[in-house]
Amino acid sequence: MTLLERDPNAPVFWKGNMPVTSRYTFGLAGERFFRAIKDEGRILGTRCPECDITYVPATLFCERCMAELTEWVDAGEIGEVHTYTLLFEDMDGNRLPEPEIVAFVRLGDGGLVHRLGEVELDELYIGMNVEPVFKPAAERTGSILDILYFRPVD
């Protein structure tokens, strides 16, 4: 606390918050993407044959040429750790008891940000092959959290 903040003549402040509650519609491609995770435990992408790009997660359009994408593909069960970090703070800025391992996992020409699990730090490297660990089918809701984490492939 600075001297200024201790000054009894300093103005008070008013605390406020914003009660924002909203819906979000993920759209036609997003609906099918999450339904495949929920029902089949599969990660889907869409292909732009013109640009030779496989979008993961699937999108309805190619952001490079703006074509509508109709070719759906299975992104496969194995991705590659493109980059990773050890996160030491939670959303409130508090120190986490153990750092979380967060990675961008390359799938097709896109990929997913997610946690890594069942991995030893000294074995982890950029380029490592990993696979998603899904919740049991009955517990899946069609969410990114249906994937618990990615783990190394033996």
Binding site: Y24, F26, G30, F34, P57, H82, T83, Y84, T85, L86, L87, E89, D90, M91, G93, E100, V102, A103, F104, L112, V113, H114, R115, I126, S143, I144, L145
Partner: peptide, 25 residues
Amino acid sequence: DPVLNRPLRLNPEYIAGLEMHRYLY
């Protein structure tokens, strides 16, 4: 992204960590 990223509830500094690591690499 509200459905792809936000549900992970990660302090957004993780994005800087991911970028930095790949940049160094």
